[in-house]
Design a protein around this nucleic acid. Sequence first.
DNA 1: CGTGTTTGCTAATTCGTATTGTCAAGACCT
DNA 2: AGGTCTTGACAATACGAATTAGCAAACACG
Lengths: 342, 342
Amino acid sequence: MQKRAPSPRVTTRDVAERAGVSQPTVSLVLSQNPTARISPETRARIIKAAEELRYSPNLVARSLVRSRSYALGIIVPDFRNPFFADVVSSVERVAAEEGYAVLLCEAGESSPAKYLDALHARIIDGVIIDAVGASSVHADLLDRTNVVLIDQLPGRWPGVATDAESAGAQAADHLIAFGHRRIAFIGPAIDVHSFRMRERGFWNALRAAGISLPSEYLVRANATALDGRAAMRSLFALDPRPTAVFCVNDVVAIGALKACIAAGAHVPGDISIVGCDDIELAQLVTPELTTVKVPARELGGRAARLLIRTIEGKAPGKYLGRLLPVVLVARGTSGPAPGDRS
Amino acid sequence: MQKRAPSPRVTTRDVAERAGVSQPTVSLVLSQNPTARISPETRARIIKAAEELRYSPNLVARSLVRSRSYALGIIVPDFRNPFFADVVSSVERVAAEEGYAVLLCEAGESSPAKYLDALHARIIDGVIIDAVGASSVHADLLDRTNVVLIDQLPGRWPGVATDAESAGAQAADHLIAFGHRRIAFIGPAIDVHSFRMRERGFWNALRAAGISLPSEYLVRANATALDGRAAMRSLFALDPRPTAVFCVNDVVAIGALKACIAAGAHVPGDISIVGCDDIELAQLVTPELTTVKVPARELGGRAARLLIRTIEGKAPGKYLGRLLPVVLVARGTSGPAPGDRS
DNA sequence: CGTGTTTGCTAATTCGTATTGTCAAGACCT
DNA sequence: AGGTCTTGACAATACGAATTAGCAAACACG
């Protein structure tokens, strides 16, 4: 016993009847490319009838016949993370501007495969994937639809990405320039390409500076504030303690900062912290977080535009290719290494 | 020149052909209530064929004939606000468990009417609205579909809500108990019911305690951290200055806290701050934020379950009615009023 | 052996829109 | 007047699954 939709739907047939024409004529007038040959009078009559009846097209029926749904999927691991919230928000905005709806999927740390199936069943026009293990998904699942990957290895599918390796390198260089030599890293073990690249850029920059570090300075922790805090606590147990930490993202960094303050350590006097993303919150903690600014909204916006262009058969234009640049923003959580005169 | 979907879709007809039966039989086996009378052998043959062809039903076609899309809409003003992100996240989780997709709409401070039209065209099964001005939308728009409102006036449509009035009252009582008498409020002017109720509960509690306040202690600001910061700055210009501030939500409170620290004011020594929501971040700023805990995830989860039960024609069960309780969590940003001995 | 009943499947139709092909009426030309 | 062109509309059909009605075969029973 389903509850019935309260008001019956107005169809093209209703409009046709009212305007004294046939259903296809209504369809031609209300949907078609302006190529159709319809007399101005008929057109006006149909439009008037449609307005009077408050006709609104049934996009499901349209989807069926056109094999187009004007809907996009987006898969992110966790949009309670402000960075992903920004990405999703900008995707939604662009999609809405272009007349597309957005189906939201939060995959957590599991594979997006499950969601890909669900989206495919709905004849999604395309999907943006910024999720764990996207690169390990069966190619079949991705080949059935239009895909844009965010922050993944350049490969078979188009994508947009930030220069994550540079982000890690800039963080390392910043800390090195402040005289730090014992520098730790906190980041997750999961297969998120941008995280991996940040880490790689970081280690490479250290190696280039001739700094090598004990394995205890690499702490694996989930990309959440709580885990960042716990990770920082474990670093305090070490001897010698690191004088600086690069965290894989700002949420982790804020957790780490919290741990330092709770432990009575002075930031940046005793220990420097650098995050990554530059979420809004970075400027609201005290001291303000030194971080690498990553253009989240531009990332999402580009992904959406690239996907929509692909769907509509246009050239990708300027939306493909280049790594989006990132830049370190020095704020209050980084400073000279303790005992360093430079 | 559209790009064609790479791999052709497997339909019930394909499965039927492979299994040596007719299309309707396949449909009966793969979709219907188990009422259908199909011999076990035929059933097995069809299921096998479906698996071999990796059949996945076209939900668009199913939607068209059933007038059901197994998709929900959710409209929020801003999901970069962690509170709404929590709501959306919990809605998405429940929806996914029950086999529904979620269409995300970020309405900003504009009316959700525009999105309601777009959702209606997609034969959404129902919509959850937690947005500005939801109560002022034309009833027609809401009557066409199943609706659950979050944090709105109890009225014609079912809804779930938190006890926002109590939230304001608890914040006020907490500050009064600490001896504060000059207490300010920072909150937006927009028509968000929960914000209004928080404000009302707050003023009522003050009035009940015999405290009346100058109008300058009511500061209008958007519900963002940046605006919270600016609002707090304006409070510093007053003489006499308030000794405590209740902020309409945590994001604003964190902005206000930042302004205090930047101005060199001691929190809670010089000024106490109380927020509302208890987002994760509340425990990550220093000092940790005193706030009123609002069960965002439960709110979203209940809304989703209530909506799905309505759609499926079941009784609302326990998901309707009661205001979700809120409770003040005293942390580090609130303390005795300056000069108060109590 | 005929009649009634059940079982197991299929033919035909529906949902609402898009699209192709067709066809009548008028315009235009020789 | 007879023919070709153009214009403007419509009839027919497709999209993929669901659903109703109905048909044939198998079975039961007197």
